[in-house]
Design a protein around this nucleic acid. Structure first.
Lengths: 370, 370
DNA sequence: CATTAATTGATTGACGTCTATCATTCCGTG
DNA sequence: CACGGAATGATAGACGTCAATCAATTAATG
């Protein structure tokens, strides 16, 4: 119990890690044969194979990836297909990709951002078809679950390019992985927070907002949200969602309407974007009391809303983490090794009290062209 | 606006990345001179230096880290100094370190876990002094801000070993970085959530629990907590914290006492550990209503508490992310390059609705010896 | 046993960088 | 101009792996 310094060696800390030459020697075969085994070149007798594999596990051989990549001149050419335009969230994500690019270069990883049409099936299809697969080893796509893009996806996949869905998933069978949050769970989380914040047994009316219902993400969030309210907070009523097409103006109008004189709306939940309109509407209305507000994504306007206490909760996807994972994951898949993280990302919940003082890539107005 | 496939190349996707030979050639100097510049070996004329640097930026030269490490036989020998014993949180962290070890081996990174006395200044000092600095390039220490450990830390540091604080910080001047959450902010977050959950303008009495006040983490959390309650929820009263020494039994007793017949306690906040006692106490007491509960760290018992709705909120440090960052950070520091992440980690807030179905390393009873 | 096929060994030249050595050239000083 | 130190060039051998070649050995077949 009180013994200290009990070293539990995981990787044995030997003078030097064993090389394939060591393995060959231990197995009693030539380097060439050992190489044939590890690189599966065939033409190896079962007996030799066994001897080599035994030696490998006996010595704890791990192939030196750096040396291997150096030798075969492997580089990782990655691309991020992000919606262009003025979307604050994706601007933030873009900033993270760009800042990651520099440091990744040292590891022979190149990263490109390719603009695609935001959420437009046809545009996405075009962009995918226009991609020169031979130029990329992996692409991360902010996608859609639409049959129209299956064909270009499979074309890319057939050339060996790794494809992962990012933020918004692709047709499941036609990508290797998805990196993003579980939107239904996020909606449920929002509901739980709002339900709790109404106080035990209190009545309430929550105005829902969303970009559009054809956006699967928003629909999933609303579903999760209403499910939890219905089952766990029966005294609270969810009003029919207002569609804003993620436009700040539309959000502003909707919020103003929801809070017009005599309204009994107790809370707002915006499953979509355009929250600049929300803070504006609340700021202009100078009342001491305001409805509870839960929104998504930490961007300049929602950050300001949190700081100035117009917004109670921001559920954030953490694009920095998503970019990071996307890179690691694609690299793993390209290397053909078992990826580390498998479970969905859990979004970060920001309140007035836990926003980091410096939020990278959030300061507004950075449209720098690299 | 509707143009698609606007490629914005960040790292120019050339046929091949330029090597130092290319740089030397472009600069009109020999490879040896170029090498003297990049490796700062001295004995280079200012003029030559300039020429090489110009060529580097002109070609966009980035040194191939893999090749460099291969050549100089660089390995990264890391150690995690974690409190041993039965602490559920650190068991989880240990599991993450161990599972990371395998995959890191391919990148010439070895990871060891070294048990230290939990939170005991003397034990920590002993463990640090017993460390053979020449065996490690970097160590991550679950530390204490105590003057007694400054000396062993500096001894380690003077041999070039990188030292980072993990979860609980070390004396600031004597470590390179800290990886962990901002505990005061976490306490404030807990307070905000509980404050909101009381409902607008509602009265309340919150029973505070903690391991001990000599534990800086717990003290910071309590400070943040009471600050927010005092300033933003004046109708709510914080009861004097009960010290549990993180023992489940003590927590159980404290909870039972707080909820004894006639009690008007509306909520519980445990800034420390030992939540097995909390769920037990709540489970045994079969009343339909229960106080709001906010606790720290997702471990088997708190997970169960969330699922069975005995606990409302779990504020989790995400040991997986912390381990990951610690490794990346130490590697960066050893390589002498600017680390990527700087701001403190934001803990994940788990509610009943967003716990991942598979929580790695949380299943109880894994005391596997590797 | 001869012939063919399968398997193995031995070796070599990359890959990009580091480290070291040694010979050469340059420059300023006396 | 000669000298010495500073600066530069040229080169070579690692590092661990990949990819390829060719010769040598072994096993399988009729």
């Amino acid at each position: 119990m009180s013994r200290s310094s009990t070293s539990r060696s995981i990787s044995t800390t030997e003078p030097r890690a064993p090389t394939l030459t060591d393995v060959a020697e231990a197995a009693g075969v030539s380097y060439a044969t050992a190489d044939r085994v590890v690189n599966q070149r065939g033409n190896v007798a079962a007996k030799s194979m066994r001897k080599v594999q035994d030696a490998m596990s006996a010595l704890g051989y791990v192939r030196n990836l750096a040396a291997a990549n150096l030798s075969r001149q492997r580089t990782y050419r990655l691309a991020f297909l992000l919606p262009g335009g003025r979307n604050a969230f994706f601007n933030r994500m873009r900033a993270h990709v760009e800042s990651a690019a520099t440091r990744l270069a040292a590891d022979q990883i190149t990263v490109e951002v390719i603009d695609i049409d935001a959420f437009a099936i046809k545009g996405l299809r075009q962009s995918l078809k226009a991609l020169d697969a031979s130029r990329y080893d992996g692409i991360a796509v902010v996608g859609l679950r639409a049959d129209e893009i299956v064909e270009p996806l499979d074309d890319l996949g057939s050339t060996g390019t790794i494809i992962v869905g990012l933020v918004s998933d692709l047709p499941e069978k036609h990508r290797s992985a998805y990196i993003g949050i579980d939107n239904e769970s996020a909606g449920r989380t929002a509901a739980r927070l709002l339900g709790l914040a109404h106080g035990p047994g209190a009545k309430g009316r929550i105005q829902l907002l969303a970009g559009s219902l054809s956006s699967v993400d928003h629909a999933e969030r609303l579903k999760g949200f209403t499910d939890v309210i219905t089952s766990d907070f029966p005294m609270i009523k969810c009003l029919d969602p207002i569609m804003t097409r993620d436009r700040a103006n539309a959000v502003k109008t909707a919020v103003e309407h929801a809070l017009r004189k005599g309204s009994t709306t107790t809370a707002l939940y915006n499953a979509g974007a355009g929250n600049a309109g929300l803070t504006t509407a609340l700021r202009e209305r100078n009342k001491r009391s305001r409805p509870l507000c839960v929104v998504h994504e930490l961007v300049p306007h929602t950050l300001a809303g949190l700081r100035e206490k117009y917004i109670d909760v921001v559920i954030d996807q953490r694009p920095d983490i998503e970019v990071n994972r996307a890179v690691t994951l694609m690299k793993d898949l390209i290397d053909g090794r078992q990826p580390l993280h498998t479970h969905a990302l859990v979004p970060t919940i920001y309140l007035h009290d836990n926003v980091p003082c410096d939020v990278h890539g959030i300061s507004p107005g950075n449209d720098k062209q690299t």
